[in-house]
Amino acid sequence: MPIIEVKNLTKKYEYYKKAPGLLASMKSLFHREKLYTEAVKNISFTVEEGELVGFLGPNGAGKTTTLKMLSGILYPTSGEAKVLGHVPWKREKKYQKQFAIVMGQKNQLWWDLPAMDSFILNKEIYEVPDAQFKKTVDGLAELLEIKDILDVQVRKLSLGQRMKCELIAALLHQPKVLFLDEPTIGLDVVSQQKMREFIKTYNEQKKTTILLTSHYMEDVKALCKRVIIIDHGEIRYDGALSALIDKYVDHKVITVTFTKPVERVDLEKFCPVMECTPLRAVLNVPNEEVKKVAAKILTTYPVDDILIDEVPVEDVIRRIFTTGKS
């Protein structure tokens, strides 16, 4: 039985038009034009227990709005959703004790106090027993390597350290469902990597169902077997990350370096040439012709090295967003 069930969920925001300039501002005192934007349009999907699903999309695609509806922060305009059998926006305490949300761009920790003070508040809010609290904080702090900073004011921590503390605050009550909204945003490469490793380990050990949004493809590639791609509020793709490439890409990329200069026109006889310098070329080759083309190049030209790659996932997703095709 799915842990998260979303059916025809829609969220429409209303806002007022604000034309620039003094005159327009004066006019708006008497009349304001109300506008609507559909952040999420009729989306449906399910997530099984223990799954770690990547929720991808450009800015304003509707990812965060969806997470906020699933965590009961926002009311939907229409549609249904159930998480752990609860309707999120009813804000039942029983449900709220079973999920957590972490937002990379917002903090729930008290800024001017050590993180431990916020943990103690969460302990009482989520009614975590003393022994479990100590064990969880110790365990997570050890795993995230931040044992020595729990009594330092949050405002004095680095962004990476703060995010780790945010994670501990969110995981104290051992939620069954975890919503991670851009957890690695703004972090340096090393911190991103550590955060990824932690999320992966936590998901494997605790079987927590995780819905993750991120702009970083590295996060998605490292963590998610399944992705949901959302754009302009609509789901464009829902399936395995590996299948995404099969579905949207009909070619591979061959990169060849030569020992002697080669003419572009000669290479174009085989397939489209994406890049070409006298000693290096990048070719887009249809899947069914890869072997044949590679063999031909190897026998015809002075090849120093040849690499056959899949099209990067980033490019696939970018193409989905730019073409708007499903």
Binding site: G72, I73, R91, F99, I101, K106, I125, Y126
Partner: peptide, 12 residues
Amino acid sequence: DGAMDFILARPV
């Protein structure tokens, strides 16, 4: 500033 998010998500 959207800080209500965390307040509304808590079981209290």
